[in-house]
Design a protein around this nucleic acid. Sequence first.
DNA 1: TTATATCCGACCTATTTAGTCCTAATTAAA
DNA 2: TTTAATTAGGACTAAATAGGTCGGATATAA
Lengths: 134, 134
Amino acid sequence: MLKITRKVEYALIALSQMQLKGNKSLTSVKEISQQNGIPYELLAKTMQLLARAEIVEAVKGPHGGYRLKKDPSIIKMTTFFEIIEGPMGFMDCSFDTDCDQIQSCAIRTPIQRINDSIRNMFNNISLQDITMLS
Amino acid sequence: MLKITRKVEYALIALSQMQLKGNKSLTSVKEISQQNGIPYELLAKTMQLLARAEIVEAVKGPHGGYRLKKDPSIIKMTTFFEIIEGPMGFMDCSFDTDCDQIQSCAIRTPIQRINDSIRNMFNNISLQDITMLS
DNA sequence: TTATATCCGACCTATTTAGTCCTAATTAAA
DNA sequence: TTTAATTAGGACTAAATAGGTCGGATATAA
């Protein structure tokens, strides 16, 4: 419980390596997957999510790859998680469907509090805070 | 991802209801499961975990049930999670096995940071903070 | 034209979580 | 002393999620 997924993990590894190389040079999926022992296909799909969300810019063809497009310090971790896991994949209340019943709304409270705490925390942490080296 | 489990959810529901009734009267699993539409057996096992950890005290036999044993305001949420999910079930680094390799230690950092943030937050939140009514 | 990239959906597998079943052990009360 | 209600706890099955693979399409530098 309360674990992040491999996709998030792999994306963070990729981004921190790209930051190392600066935001002009390109980094390919092959490069990152080989250097870190990450499954190529899974990393590839994850990078595609980042590209669609314009966190990263893709260059196709030989000597292609990805480079940073947005400044990681302006991206909230909540946004980042939602890009990778989808808006629903992340901490939604499992009692939503019962929520017409008054009872259920009462019992929702503790879980709400936990989710709010987590969401609030990651709203105040940027991608840069997590991927920076120092 | 980053979700709490049903067992944690059910335990929190149970505890908040028990707090409502005060820490002298007994509350049975049957009562809580019926009132909240929670599977009896699963809740029962969860309450047993709380009893073993002496969060709650069990009284067997007819008109038995559980009552609070420890003050929820002195129990950290990290402790609570570990009681229910076990010390390993909660945010352990998935790269632990590779950790002899220098590479892997470098890439661990972002995940470590996230886990540390979560753990740190829940070290500073008490069970009372989550289950209280107001 | 070819080799090397990203793109993308469909699919399979493994792991984790949720839920069920069955059988004690204990005890209040008829 | 029997019965019914309760907690205790292990073994098992089912469902959901996460992790990983495959096949083919598109773009582009050389």
